[in-house]
Design a protein around this nucleic acid. Structure first.
Lengths: 220, 220
DNA sequence: GACTCGGGGTCAGATTCTGACTTTAATTCA
DNA sequence: TGAATTAAAGTCAGAATCTGACCCCGAGTC
């Protein structure tokens, strides 16, 4: 590629990134609907029209942020695997990492949460919504893999048909605890409380799943 | 100023600076004539045409670099004054600073030197050339000020009509020594040799000027 | 249901940029 | 000398990017 051409391409990508950066901040603060394209343009020091040279719609901006966040999220969480540890250790680490992301990359987390909480009235096209949900599920199914690994290694005792429910329970535990503390409780205590609550829940669940406790038949 | 407008102005100035930066490097390496506008454009990752949106001619680019260098140079050298010291101390510091600039901002120095060495066949317009020379003279006349200060304080013995000649002799000493070592002598020895040569010359000149040596009448 | 208002999206015109083209001036060679 | 060649300065039509006034629609108000 020629000199000026290369420079132009680079600058075009920088511009795009700048728009996404501005938009991410605004979406994290306010969600989808209240953020106007004009406000994104203003933050990025561009005119509204210029935004449409880089994206086809407000929805597309939101989607790209969401997808890249979900992917980054999934990438981070994937790294938890591939260390020769017990399933319960991995579960603890997974939870820790999840909480870390919440605490350190709050904007990403909020955007994600916002999507989960109100995906239906976001008026994204159905295809896009499904794509994002599929991506999110990839992360959720990591929990299932951990559980499966525990079952395979003989560490955990869990029937095939309960796997999915347990996975959702664990995922729910994480998000529920975090959400609980997001709106109540003092900022200063938040991290400790989230961590200890999650750890406590995990401990009990893992205890209930470990093979040593051989008795189990008390049906629901 | 509005958001996008402010950004545009900023970016325009950045572009201009980038062009000057590329051009300065090339001019320092090769002088005026051999540097083509196309080569400046290439280094700045722009087309030739774009260069002419920021400058009216190759000459103007060169001039702006030269002027800003001369001004920076003069500013640095001016700071030598305004410390309550003897004229000879100030002369030593002035020389040291001059050598420092040569050693640390070689590109600027080369551009300046190049101008001094071949101002006549640079085909700059006469007005511009005179403007730059006037600016350079401001710096040269700093030496005269130092000498005058020495005379006024009774430290130096120098007739009014000899002032200018002495000033030029000192300036010549500096540039002559530097030029000498610029083309001969090993890089590793250069700094030491320049400094010691200049110091030696200064020492002798100052000795010849200090009032204590009262005898003087041996005309040329 | 008419009216207002706010925000998504459009578009004509302004600005910036590109590279092929024209001009100019210096050099070579008959 | 002066015609031919060449190389670099400088130009310009058209492409790319950007702007902000404008259009349109849907949601709320009376």
């Amino acid at each position: 590629m020629a000199g000026p051409e290369k420079r132009r391409k680079r600058e075009r990508e920088q511009r795009k990134k700048a728009i996404l950066k501005s938009a991410r901040k605004l979406f994290a603060e306010r969600g989808f609907k209240p953020v106007t394209v004009a406000s994104i343009a203003k933050k990025a020091e561009l005119s509204k029209g210029a935004i449409y040279l880089y994206f086809n719609s407000k929805e597309e901006i939101y989607t790209q942020i969401l997808l890249s966040d979900v992917e980054a999220f999934h990438k981070t969480m994937s790294q938890i695997f591939s260390r020769g540890e017990t399933a319960s250790q991995i579960l603890y680490e997974f939870s820790d990492a999840y909480i870390d992301i919440f605490l350190n990359a709050r904007e990403q987390f909020r955007t994600l949460m916002n999507f989960m909480l109100s995906a239906e009235h976001l008026n994204l096209s159905n295809g896009i919504r499904r794509q994002i949900i599929r991506e999110m599920n990839k992360t959720i199914s990591l929990i299932e893999k951990i559980l499966q690994y525990g079952v395979d290694s003989g560490e955990l005792n869990l029937k095939k048909q309960d796997m999915r429910r347990m996975r959702n329970a664990l995922w729910g535990l994480l998000n529920g605890v975090i959400s609980l503390h997001l709106f109540v409780g003092a900022e200063s205590m938040r991290e400790d409380r989230i961590r200890s609550n999650v750890r406590e829940g995990l401990k009990t669940i893992i205890a209930g799943l470990t093979k040593t406790s051989k008795k189990k038949e008390a049906h629901v």
